[in-house]
Design a binder for these strands. Structure first.
Lengths: 172, 172
DNA sequence: CCCGATTAGTTGACATCTAAATAATATAGT
DNA sequence: ACTATATTATTTAGATGTCAACTAATCGGG
């Protein structure tokens, strides 16, 4: 039963039941892990979205964009926003349009590059974001409150490693 | 999925430096943990989406819906699909419309409840899903390949716990 | 049996989101 | 300078997503 063949030319050749089982379990485990990751994210994301909607009549993407700008006082170029938010450029254009119409952000011509625009928070935008951010932080803290600090640290470390791995695997 | 923004940035609300530092670090940690979770999910999600698009000319929500049906030979009611996919009912209606138009799923009247519909995979749908699922599994395995089995188990356990906590925190 | 409250699903209005095409500007190599 | 190429932002079409209002069918207490 121990057909130890590792023949590269015959990948379809059956492995031992043991190793095959182990491999199959490993495969299932990766997919299950991914689904679990996705479930956690969706739960939190939906919760935060609903709170932003009911509490501030705004949306997650708007909040996200403003959050990026909050820590960039000199503003960010559209492309930089796109990279940080991990969405396409066209998407950023649309969200910026709406926020600009609401007077929360402003497009400013970039001095160094005439193709580029810098998006900045307006005074009103900074003020509104401040109010939202304080509450948002409390929501998130509440969602993670039941997990002991130690486990949160473990989770953060594992996710950090995963992020590196995935980033590497997706770029080449 | 969700009118979804993919990365929300941390607030960092200034308080006094000395007395609240420890608490603030804990709070900050929760937000950073959430951002890291979101970053991992977005990376994987974007990768899988692009592969589904280039390899099968389909999308993640379609794949997701078909995956739910694959595990339910009797079919699923719209509401059940909505719950499992964690999206609204209206959304499920739209995706089902398109998949039905493509002949991959079918709406069947429910015998027990005349309000309800059962959505089932067609033979063509089952076949196409099979092909996609095999590749999809390989993509996911590849993304997680660099992480040792032991750590994957830890991560899965921590996420399981988090999921329970968040589910509890968001329902009451 | 009947009526009000739920439940299942769809619809319409609108906001995100991607992928692809476009216009305008920068940059590098010759 | 000139040209080919790359970068920056927008636009378009189509898919996904929420929410609220709607129809139809079920359920439960009188």
């Amino acid at each position: 039963m121990v057909a130890k063949s590792k023949s590269i030319l015959a990948p379809a050749v059956p492995l031992t039941i043991d190793s095959e089982t182990r491999v199959r379990d490993d495969h299932h485990q990766s997919v299950r892990l991914w689904l679990r990751l996705l479930a956690c994210t969706s739960l939190i994301e939906n919760h935060v979205r609903q709170r932003l909607q009911s509490g501030f009549a705004t949306t997650l993407p708007r909040f996200d964009l403003m959050a990026q700008l909050e820590r960039a006082p000199e503003g960010l170029k559209m492309g930089e926003l796109s990279r940080r938010m991990m969405v396409t450029g066209g998407n950023v254009t649309g969200i910026t349009d709406l926020l600009e119409k609401e007077g929360l952000v402003a497009r400013v011509a970039d001095a160094a590059d005439r193709r580029a625009l810098r998006v900045k928070l307006t005074a009103a935008g900074r003020q509104q974001f401040g109010r939202m951010a304080r509450e948002h932080e409390q929501w998130v803290i509440g969602l993670f409150a039941a997990m002991p600090l130690r486990k949160k640290e473990q989770l953060a470390a594992l996710l950090s490693e995963l992020k590196q791995n995935v980033a590497r695997a997706t770029t080449d």
